[in-house]
Design a protein around this nucleic acid. Structure first.
Lengths: 232, 232
DNA sequence: TAGTGGTCTAGACCACGAC
DNA sequence: TCGTGGTCTAGACCACTAC
């Protein structure tokens, strides 16, 4: 049998997925949750501590426990690892180059665990620091999860939009990095010669319930910037 | 005042640094530690759980709590992020190209927090998979921490040597990644043309007591391999 | 002052490993 | 069977926030 605190944890995650508590909202207090779920406060606490460690909730002494929001700095930088060489964390501006729908390619079906023939939304954009382009990004999203996305404006912070408009919270991602030569198609957008070395980041993002919800290929110049990883 | 469980944690780390318990050895049981330190078992447990989460100790139900060892698996999963494109984790062979002592450069002093004029050990080696060279590595170590290192054989698993021979346990590292063109000096070792894109990994490794103990620049080809990061 | 999460304690029982 | 860590409970007090 699964430990009680993990069952509690899953109940709470289920509720967040179902939108019972929206991002930014406070959860009931530990005592209330314990009473409602028929367990002791300590068990609820262990579940919440684990969720806090994974950035799903934020605990504030004296105030309460809140569902994590995707516009808090700590969450933003959970997924954005590119830092200036003097260690400054900054967030780039974005400009959408194209957006549209299409039948998912084989690679997209594989990455996003979609059935053959499913449809995806594709976004291509450039991200810049101080008007200097540094990243070209190609995103694929399952259309069923984000209906109508192509008709709205695309904000800089996409994960905030996923959460606010579609109730899809990105909780975790895995990134695969390679060094590649910038191909002809991307050279112009980045303002460099084709063949320049660049960092290719292949990211698959997962929702609270571990479903892949976004596939993103980012081609990054690393002049004055680097990808920062902590091996803990 | 610092919480009790953190004081316990620091006491235990201090003992590991001082070699009271060597890697692989069991710690006293929770009850024994609690009695000795004059706290409750729950407080010791919280300290140990935290240390287990940071890979400093390994807990095994029914057996005990053990000081973590720098065996291949730990290196592979905690410190070696390069995996094959089909997800296989493998350990490369290494061949030392040169080893020697020198006065630390300004960059080395800055990275390793050394006084100007300190001496360092420098190692240069090539790492291969199936005899195909994939990584050229330049390491710098403070000589005071590793006396006599230049006179011994250099094993493939350096962190194991640091721990076994010098009592220096690498607990954490930060890595900075860039995409660069392979310079002339390294092209021959890697068997590629100068200018080929490669991943440059700048790693600073810290001991249990948070002292920088190794600076490592790894130039990696990412053909058939990638750097894997989990954003949690 | 009241309510929240943070720390600390004490004790019970369970699951696992060694013998 | 015994000793270990793993889970669960219950209750006390502290630190912080809001009112």
């Amino acid at each position: 049998m699964k430990p009680l605190y993990r069952q509690v944890r899953e109940t709470l995650i289920r509720r967040m997925v179902d939108g019972v508590w929206a991002p930014g909202e406070p959860l009931p207090s530990e005592m209330q949750l314990a009473a409602e779920l028929g367990v002791s406060q300590g068990t609820v606490r262990k579940a919440l501590d684990e969720m806090a460690a994974e950035n799903m909730v934020v605990r504030k002494q004296g105030r309460g426990t809140f569902v994590a929001r995707h516009d808090e700095d700590r969450i933003l930088f959970q997924f954005f690892k590119l830092v200036t060489d003097d260690g400054e964390r900054r967030f780039p501006e974005s400009r959408v180059l194209s957006i549209g729908k299409a039948r998912a390619s084989a690679a997209e079906c594989a990455a996003l665990a979609l059935d053959k023939g499913s449809r995806v939304i594709r976004i291509r954009r450039v991200r810049s620091f101080d008007a200097v382009p540094l990243i070209v990004e190609n995103l694929s999203l399952p259309e069923t999860l984000f209906p109508g996305l192509t008709e709205t404006g695309i904000p800089n912070n996409l994960y905030g939009l996923y959460a606010a408009r579609y109730g899809v919270t990105v909780a975790r991602a895995r990134e695969q990095l390679k060094a590649v030569a910038v191909p002809k198609e991307d050279a112009a957008e980045l303002g460099v010669a084709a063949g320049t070395p660049a960092l290719l980041i292949d990211r698959l993002a997962f929702s609270l319930d571990q479903i892949p919800v976004e596939w993103r290929l980012s081609l990054c110049l690393t002049d004055g910037f680097h990808y920062l990883a902590d091996l803990t």
